[in-house]
Amino acid sequence: MKDWYTYIMVALVGNLLLVHLNGGGANDGVKAPLEGGRSVRNNPGSYRSHYSSGYYHIGGK
């Protein structure tokens, strides 16, 4: 009798392999198109990150 659990585990193992073979996995970044067509290389200070920026102060006790 076919057991659905077998399929679940095959899928989980397959996902594990796929993640590693396809560059998948955790992602902490944001992908976005460059704006304005300006060269960041020549003017790096002009770039505005798409990541939520700003000072992030970690308070102490």
Partner: peptide, 28 residues
């Protein structure tokens, strides 16, 4: 504390991948 905005920019494709990392040291 140090907060680093990091971008990996594909100049040809005009795409950017942005992220950030934070480190710190405090005492009191």
């Amino acid at each position: 504390w140090g907060y680093f905005l990091i971008s990996l920019i594909d100049e040809k494709g005009q795409q950017a991948r942005d992220t950030a990392v934070q480190v710190y040291q405090e005492r009191g």
